[in-house]
């Protein structure tokens, strides 16, 4: 029982991170039908910016959090404007390669700015790990899970209750119809990019204290986050959250009861299974283009 609980804690910590990254993927896909392979790099930039702000510039955690999210969101807007909107033939194959190119570019840029070493920062609040029925839980893990759920709740509220959110939702359903009723669809695309990369930054910030951020941390996190989004249902907010937690917990249980060598394979096996048998994910949000 104690072991199971420990695996569970490990699972929800990683799961919450995957969930936040998955939300970023999903929200972008829902509004623009685009998958951003550079998403993991925005997570990395978020983490490293946070480290620089808090450790080098000694900005307190809360303002640093906001500055980072805002800054990375702006970077996302710039990326959309320069690299996505300018594309002359927006086909999936072209966009995949552009975003892959962007991810390599951003990684190279981060290597120049932050160097090749790993960095470190203290947890948001310094406390001893909590002891729950013999299993240990870091306070940072609680922060991670709380922030992940809060972020999802805020987004839910944004889509259901605010005019902008509803407009974005309308764009996601039918761009031309939205345009006809006077919704500026280009602006909405831009906004979706900002939201998505901002989500990436949130994921980066919350894991910065428990992992050691470095320029090459993004790709694996991005891929796993993507698997989580697929698992839960690409385009669905709560599906992504579910997929994230599910992936995290399954990985931890896989390590616990199968083999730690195959940990990374878990995510990709699940990805293939979902693609083959239920391409819409557990909560199908969008009509899947499959044959």
């Amino acid at each position: 029982m104690q072991e199971f609980l420990q695996y569970f804690f490990s699972g929800i910590t990683n799961g919450a991170i995957y969930a936040v990254i998955a939300i970023g993927f999903s929200m972008l896909y829902r509004s623009t039908d685009l998958i951003n392979f550079a998403h993991g790099e925005f997570v990395m930039i978020g983490a490293l910016t946070m480290v620089t702000l808090t450790m080098t510039l000694h900005v307190p955690v809360v303002p640093a959090f906001l500055i980072t999210v805002f800054g990375v969101a702006i970077l996302g807007l710039v990326f959309e404007r320069l690299a996505i909107r300018t594309v002359s033939r927006p086909e999936p194959i072209v966009l995949i390669i552009i975003t892959v190119g962007a991810s390599i570019f951003l990684r190279g840029l981060a290597m120049l700015i932050w160097g090749k070493d790993s960095h470190t920062m203290p947890p948001f609040t310094a406390h001893q790990p909590l002891d729950i029925a013999g299993a240990r839980l870091l306070t940072q893990s609680i922060w991670i899970v709380l922030i992940a759920i809060m972020v999802a709740a805020c987004l839910h509220f944004f889509y259901k209750r605010t005019l902008t959110g509803k407009a974005m939702h309308a764009c996601a359903i039918n761009k031309q119809a939205a345009w006809l009723v006077g919704i500026p669809s280009k602006l909405m695309t831009l906004l979706a990019f900002g939201l998505s990369t901002g989500m990436g930054a949130v994921a980066g910030i919350i894991i910065a204290p428990i992992t050691m951020p470095a320029y090459d941390m993004g790709s694996m996190l991005g891929l796993k986050g993507f698997c989580a989004a697929m698992l839960g249902g690409l385009g669905s907010l709560w599906g992504s959250v579910l997929g994230g937690f599910l992936l995290g917990i399954l990985e931890a249980l896989g390590v616990g009861f199968v083999s730690s060598g195959l940990k990374d394979a878990t995510a990709f096996l699940l990805l293939l299974l979902v693609l083959y048998f239920r391409p819409g994910g557990i909560i199908s949000a969008v009509k899947v283009k499959r044959f």
Partner: peptide, 11 residues
Amino acid sequence: RDTDTTAQLTN
């Protein structure tokens, strides 16, 4: 680049 290894350590 693992972020958490508590599951392995629990084993």
